[in-house]
């Protein structure tokens, strides 16, 4: 075992125990069902805005776009308009492909040392595939949860439920997104544990969110398919929260409070963690800057105002003396 994933695992188990004992033995439903979620949400929103604000205040001293194609230069050299965007339109397409399809992960290769010795770079799309599966299933799960927070529930959410559960396995029907979310998160975790190079650069801050998200998914799946909670009571609680009439209905199982506590911890932890790539992906200068470094000069925004004395001014000061000494001048007297 390795402390980099042992400590986060123990932290998640401790969080489970805190919530479970707190609700089951001490009866702190108010704390875990209302106060902590509210505080977590405030921390999430305020922390997120402050973090983005901090980034927005940081000047970008150099134009440092990453180039993955030929830059716009001479008319007879064909530029790559998306991978080396020269215009704002190109940047928008590049950013959209990055944010929606994780294009940079698609470029992932793995390095292999062969006999000889020669080196080869091999096709490796699993990280891209599972990241995409993970993020989109997480989004679907998140959107599906809106049914607990909206009344009346919009019909678009019911269509999403139908699509997600179209396999009609068992009752309550299996939701594809939940299964994919758990499977993809497990892959991303095992990748960090099994591949020695990835394990070497993985830190506790990488493992903690993964364990936490896996715990959220497992507790949610437990609630839906196995131990069951009073779903009408759950909606009563969540609706009380979003209409600012907090209220704890009786008889909701402790597993629900555990689930909510995990989500609260994730939300509160979010602005201080690597999870901020949600906001950061929009603000990475290597991606959102135009690759026009040959055509335009990028001026460092923190350059101090330098007082310069140009040659024209110098000549103005000394013209007579220069002519007297026989030196050439640009402007005669």
């Amino acid at each position: 075992m390795n402390e980099k994933y042992l400590y986060p695992l123990m932290a998640v188990i401790a969080l489970f125990l805190v919530a479970y004992v707190g609700v089951e033995a001490v009866g702190l439903q108010w704390l875990f069902g209302i106060i902590i979620p509210f505080m977590a949400l405030i921390t999430f929103v305020v922390g997120f805005v402050m973090r983005v604000n901090d980034w927005a205040r940081s000047p970008v001293p150099f134009a440092i776009p990453t180039t993955c194609g030929q830059q716009e230069s001479l008319p007879w050299i064909k530029p790559n308009k998306i991978d080396n965007p020269f215009t704002t339109g190109g940047v928008i397409i590049r950013m959209a492909l990055e944010i929606l399809l994780f294009r940079s992960l698609f470029r992932n290769t793995t390095c292999k040392l062969n006999e000889g010795p020669t080196i080869s770079y091999v096709w490796e799309k699993w990280l891209w595939l599972f990241s995409l599966a993970f993020h989109y299933s997480f989004l679907t799960v998140l959107v599906r949860h809106l049914r607990f927070f909206l009344e009346p529930v919009p019909s678009s959410l019911q269509i999403l439920d139908k699509l997600d559960g179209f396999l009609q396995i068992g009752l309550p029907g299996v939701m594809i997104s939940g299964v994919v979310l758990l499977a993809a998160a497990m892959f991303l975790l095992l990748r960090r544990i099994v591949i020695s190079q990835v394990r070497y650069f993985s830190l506790a801050a990488d493992f903690f969110p993964l364990f936490l998200i896996i715990a959220i998914a497992v507790s949610g799946i437990m609630m839906r398919y196995f131990t069951k909670v009073d779903i009408v009571g759950v909606k009563e609680l969540t609706m009380g929260m979003v209409t600012f009439h907090p209220h704890i209905p009786d008889g909701i199982g402790a597993i629900f409070y555990v689930h909510v506590f995990f989500v609260s911890v994730l939300l509160a932890y979010f602005p201080f963690s690597k999870l901020m790539h949600l906001g950061g992906v929009f603000l990475s200068p290597t991606r959102n800057v135009r690759c026009n470094t040959r055509a335009h000069r990028h001026i460092n925004p923190w350059n101090p105002k330098v007082k310069v004395h140009t040659y024209a001014e110098y000549e103005d000061d000394f013209r007579e003396k220069m002519i007297g000494a026989g030196l050439p001048v640009e402007k005669e007297l």
Binding site: V45, F48, N53, F149, E151, V232, H245
Partner: peptide, 27 residues
Amino acid sequence: IVAGLVIFVAIVTFPFWYNLGNASSAP
């Protein structure tokens, strides 16, 4: 930046203003 943050906050707080003035009780 401000436009992006306004969109972010609007999405996160969507359930609060969707249910504004609508205190329905459990059936």
